[in-house]
Simulated scan of single mutants.
Amino acid sequence: MLNTLTLNRKKNAAILLLILVAMVLFFAIQRVQQRLQPIPVLAPASLAVETLTLAPAPFSIHVGYVGSVMAGRVVQIPAQVGARVMAVEHREGDRVEQGDLLIRLDDRELSNEIQRLRANEQRLRSDFDYWERQNRRNITLRQQKVIPENQLDESRRMVDSLQASIHENAEALANAEIRLGYTRIHAPFAGRIARLMTEVGDLAVPLSKPLLELVSLQAMKALVSVPQVDIGRLSRGLAVNLEISAANLHLARRIEKIYPLLDPVTRNATFEVCLSCGPEALPASLYPGMALAATVVLAQYDEALSIPHHALLWRGDEQGVFLFEDGVARWRPLQSGAVEGGRVLIRSGLKAGDRLIVTPDFRLQDGLAVAVPVLGEVSP
Rank of each mutant, 00 (worst) to 15 (best):
L242P: 01
L242E: 06
E243D: 13
I244F: 02
A246M: 05
R253S: 05
R254H: 11
D263S: 10
P264Q: 06
R267L: 15
R267V: 06
N268T: 11
N268H: 13
A269Y: 01
A269L: 03
A269I: 01
V273S: 04
C274T: 06
G278T: 14
G278V: 12
L282V: 08
A284D: 15
S285H: 06
S285M: 04
P288I: 07
A291F: 09
A291V: 04
T295D: 13
T295N: 12
V296C: 05
V297R: 03
V297F: 03
L298A: 02
A299R: 15
Q300E: 15
D302K: 13
I307C: 03
H309R: 14
H310D: 14
A311S: 15
L313A: 08
W314V: 12
D317T: 13
G320W: 06
V321S: 09
F322C: 02
E325L: 05
D326C: 00
A329Y: 05
P333H: 04
Q335N: 12
G337I: 11
V339E: 13
V339I: 15
E340A: 11
G341Q: 09
K351S: 14
A352G: 12
V358Y: 01
T359P: 03
T359L: 05
D361Y: 03
D361T: 01
L364R: 01
D366Y: 08
D366W: 11
G367A: 11
L368M: 14
L368A: 05
